[in-house]
Amino acid sequence: MALEQDDQLRALWREVLGPDADPAAGFINSGGDSFKAVLLATRVFETTGRDLDYLDVLEADGLDALRALVARTAPRG
């Protein structure tokens, strides 16, 4: 994954879950809920064009999991 996109995802993770969110901690463990998952999925789409299933975002057990989701989702216009 491009370094730029990696930074973007990290920034979005923090944007939605708060600046102190630990990227190693799960989405829900960091206080995430369905609304925040929708928000994060929307922001990821806006930035990368990849349409993630927000339920997968909700269940992500850390930033790495989010990266993996992005990696296996094809971008669409």
Binding site: G26, I28, N29, S30, G31, G32, D33, S34, L58
Partner: peptide, 12 residues
């Protein structure tokens, strides 16, 4: 919220 997050459970 605290108990829920610690368990990986959403408040809902």
């Amino acid at each position: 919220r605290r108990s829920a997050a610690a368990l990986g459970v959403t408040p809902h």
